[in-house]
Design a binder for these strands. Structure first.
Lengths: 113, 113
DNA sequence: CTTGACTATAACAAATTACTTATATAATCT
DNA sequence: AGATTATATAAGTAATTTGTTATAGTCAAG
């Protein structure tokens, strides 16, 4: 459960998701990750730490470089949460109150923020 | 993209995920949601607003009550992001450098925080 | 062994978040 | 109408987050 917190928290920041998207194209060192992102190197290092503790990336040691790559653990955590939600939703789907709210949902059609 | 931000941000808070878990059991009004959570009603209302703007819940109007229910839009957004990541990872999986880093990953085995 | 590249940490400021209590608004009930 | 219930908004506060610059540590190259 703590993992879930850390993982979703890591994903909640657009810069960190952008880092993941970059990393999805292949491994990259910290310096390589700083380039496209227009924020300082320490800021990126901080994001990487958050991503790592969320199980979304891992790092190796290559001399003085620390190449980062996507770690599937984090992705699996999200996947499991999704599956859990879908399971709970499916279980409820044939309950009467859910059906009723489905019907009533129509009146909810044009609603602003 | 803005939706992704809002959705993941909404999911990044444990209280909000707990609200979703409760809602997965079926619709609930704001007052019903306040009960199990030991925080004030305005705090819950704030969380609900965040969840709604992340497309994770929707609300109907029932007299003075505002029953909340899970909205699958948010879940689909997460699902699409997952699919996108998996696709990018799969595309890279047969690239040489990825294979190399896979091999080198072994030396990364026992690494603390 | 000094210099330069790569990354992490410290110290601090600004913005955001998540609460709180108090209050406003709207619907329900008597 | 007056009281009660259901929810939202306002104002304020403490904690957290995200960024910055400056600096330290480690490795590589000459």
């Amino acid at each position: 459960m703590k993992t879930l917190n850390a993982t979703f928290f890591a994903l909640s920041d657009p810069t960190r998701r952008a880092i993941l998207a970059r990393l999805a194209l292949g491994e990259a060192t910290v310096t390589e990750l700083v380039e496209p992102f227009a924020i300082s190197q320490p800021a990126i290092s901080g994001h990487l730490k958050v991503l790592e503790s969320g199980g979304l990336i891992s790092r190796r040691i290559d001399g003085s470089k620390r190449p980062c790559r996507i770690d599937k653990k984090g992705i699996e955590v999200v996947d499991q949460w999704l599956a859990m939600m879908r399971h709970a939703l499916a279980k409820n789907y044939d309950r009467l109150d859910q059906l009723l709210t489905d019907l009533q949902h129509n009146e909810n059609d044009a609603k602003g923020d």
